[in-house]
Design a protein around this nucleic acid. Structure first.
Length: 424
RNA sequence: GGAGAGAUGCCGGAGUGGUCGAACGGGGCAGUCUCGAAAACUGUUGUCCUGCUACGCGGGACCGGGGGUUCGAAUCCCUUUCUCUCCGCCA
């Protein structure tokens, strides 16, 4: 969330920026400032009363110790009023700050100055791409039919085992997944990312830290008995490594990568857009996460985009990089680039990566700070993450684009990982 | 799942209900010594909120989390989470 000081000190600027994100309820900003004023007043009153109480208590202690019991008891009588006041002020304080926090978490991150104005995906801006042309053979099939034809991907079996949206990979299909995961992790490691294998379930604090909770609760699978959430992305556990941490500035940037399955409930989407691997409830993804110094976070973002681009290129897929407009960006992001690859048999662009700078928005929730050498003050760090990459749609595009009458060709770069060059 | 023990500052580790934000040791930082370094010695050493005639001076909070008793709680009570040991079960 935004810090209260950002809002206090830059009221007009904040409102201007929020408009770009299509945030409607702009009046909360003034409500927040007012509540914060009330909060400060209540705290001042409570603190003053408490200070008086502390002095009085010490005095009573001294009186008892010197045997002046009568005077001590007399002094005790005076505390009851103070006690009552403190309680009252504290109640007021709690009440106001609870309300304040409820509003604060509802305010999205401010978009970066370069974010295009717009409301829908149509307003996103194409940054760059390549011009690979796919020559499909006669009677080319979408990937779900290819899966059936060559018996390496089975949606019905997944439905039997669990339910819709839980595909089963078999044989070369399963090996292809493993190959992609290893390939992605190796590429990330070469770029300086440390590999992490995190828990797939997280607690409430972690869900809050990265912004999934409280609002997007319904998007995660919830294990109610233990109050754990199945992670929707490795971003959650990996970023939360740094929750409540004060880093030394010299440790920045922290670069981590993790492969994890991801679980998403994604209620409410049906139809041809979500057929096959286009949208599933469980999928594999390799994620990269950076904790960066605020002065360098946008350089880090560029670095991440270039890195992901390098991987996509090696897979010989038609791709494009898109800068999201204010209205299409996620709640927590300040600037997001999406990667899309072209799945030729479907004739559709599929999003396979989203690389974002959250600036200090997550860090504020996480209490992730750093300290310059010799400096007493702590500063919120910047967090960034991106997929490198999400498997299902990469697989969909690979399968569809590389189909031949003899079978599906495995891209050169993957063959040493798969151990085969054709799925047939 | 059953029984017990514990949770204190960067780490280790004390702490009788009343100058305890917390002894002591280690580490870190600064200084003295040195051509430099080590050793030794000296000093310093958290976080958050907040007030003001602000690179300074105050106030409040924090001893796992939450609640309670008390004029006063790290210290007593309740509750919760986590860790460790033993038993059971299990990959």
């Amino acid at each position: 969330m935004l810090t209260i000081n950002t809002i206090r000190e830059n009221r007009d600027f904040v409102i201007e920026r929020l408009k770009i994100k299509n945030f409607k309820d702009l009046s909360v900003i003034d409500t927040i400032i007012e509540l914060d004023n009330n909060r400060r007043t209540a705290q001042k009153s409570a603190d003053d009363a408490q200070a008086e109480m502390n002095i009085l208590s010490k005095e009573i202690g001294r009186l008892f110790q010197t045997g002046k019991t009568a005077e001590a008891n007399q002094a005790k009588d005076r505390t009851s009023v103070l006690k009552e006041n403190i309680k009252e002020y504290n109640q007021k304080y709690e009440e106001v700050s609870t309300k304040l926090n409820q509003l604060l978490v509802q305010v999205p991150n401010l978009p970066h100055a370069s974010v295009p104005v717009g409301k829908t995906p149509e307003d996103n801006v194409l940054v760059r791409g390549n011009d690979i042309k796919v020559n499909l053979p006669e009677g080319a099939l979408p990937h779900w039919d290819l899966g059936t034809k060559y018996d390496f991907l089975d949606f019905d079996l997944g439905t039997k085992l669990t339910g819709a949206g839980f595909p089963v990979f078999k044989g070369k299909g399963a090996k292809l997944q493993r190959a992609l995961i290893n390939f992605f992790l190796d590429e990330n490691e070469k770029a300086g990312y440390r590999e992490i294998l995190p828990p797939l379930m997280v607690n409430e604090d972690s869900g809050f830290g990265t912004g999934q909770l409280p609002d997007k609760e319904g998007q995660m699978y919830h294990c109610q008995i233990d109050n754990f959430y199945l992670i929707p992305t490795a971003e959650v556990p990996v970023t939360n490594i740094y929750r409540d941490v004060i880093l030394d500035a010299s440790e920045l940037p922290c670069k981590n990568t993790a492969y994890t399955p991801c679980f998403r409930r994604e209620a409410g989407s049906y139809g041809k857009d979500v057929r096959g691997l286009n949208r599933v409830h469980q999928f594999d993804k390799v994620e990269i996460v950076q904790i960066a110094h605020p002065d360098h976070s946008y350089a880090a973002l560029e670095e991440m985009v270039n890195h992901v681009e390098g991987i996509v290129k090696k897979l010989e897929l038609p791709y494009r990089i898109i800068k999201l407009c204010g209205g299409d960006m996620s709640f927590t992001s300040a600037l997001t680039y999406d990667f899309e690859v072209y799945a030729a048999a479907q004739g559709r662009w599929l999003e396979v990566s989203s690389v974002s700078n959250f600036e200090s928005y997550q860090a504020n929730r996480l209490k992730l700070r750093f300290k310059e050498k010799g400096d007493k003050k702590t500063t919120l760090a910047h967090t960034l993450n991106g997929s490198s990459l999400a498997l299902p749609r990469i697989v969909a595009a690979l399968l569809e684009n590389n189909q031949t009458p003899e079978g599906i060709r495995v891209p050169e770069i993957l063959q040493s990982f798969t151990g085969f060059s054709m799925i047939n």
